[in-house]
Structures are given as structure tokens and as C-alpha cells.
Amino acid sequence: MRITQGCFSFLPDLNDEQIAAQIEYCLGKNWAIGVEYTRDPHPRNTYWNMWGNPMFDLKDAAGVMMEIRDCRKANPENYIRINAFDSTRGWETVRMSFIASRPKVEPTIEMTRLETGGRNIQYTHVTRY
């Protein structure tokens, strides 16, 4: 099941050249770049593993691409996402986030309904590998 989250996820996967171009865009805005990875793309899993510290003060995307390549090598069949953080006062938040790698075979996220008192429905999503 194709996981969609962050920017561009309804497009075909970005190739490395396109990823680098997006990173150039972020660096041009002085955003710090973080690389994160996980096996669990569940939408409630907001804490992915950090691949090293976020990178401040880079001038060129080549440095980030190096980290992405290393991260892929160390964590094959993981999701890898790029977060671009804007430290400007008032923003202080991730301004852009996109998936840069996904496993060949993606897990499915299954929804189950549980009817409780007063005919309320509780929904649960479970990642199935």
C-alpha cells in the first residue's frame, strides 16, 4: 500500500536529482535539513529515528545527499524522509517534509472499527507487514 505523507507523495517517487533540487530550494531559504527514517509509517508515529543531527549552515545539497545515501545503506527497506526546519522567530517549525525513500514492498495500514457504548465507534489503524 503506497503511503502518502508530506509533500509530493501523490507524485511518482522523486529521483536523486529531484531530491537534491528540493533540498537546494530549502537551503536557499536557510532552513535546516534533518534526515529521518523508520520502518513504521503509521500516521500517528510522528517520531521517526533521526539520522544524525539536523544540518545547519550547509551551502549545498551534496552534503545532505551524502547522508541520505549513507542512511539508505544502513537502513535498507526503510522509509526516509527529509524535514526542513525554519528557525525564524514566529515560524520555528518544519516548513517542508517529504519522503526520499520507501521500501520496495510497503506495509499496509489496516483500519478496524470497534463499536462501544452508545453506538460510538472507535477506530484503530494497525500497520501490517
Binding site: M55, D57, L58, K59, D60, A62, G63, V64, M66, E67
Partner: peptide, 11 residues
């Protein structure tokens, strides 16, 4: 070392 290499990339 990598941190500085990354900062120097493009230059």
C-alpha cells in the same frame, strides 16, 4: 569530519 565536509560541499 563529515560535518565540516558537508559544510564545505559546493566550495
Amino acid at each position: 569530519t563529515k560535518e565540516l565536509l558537508k559544510k564545505a560541499m559546493g566550495g
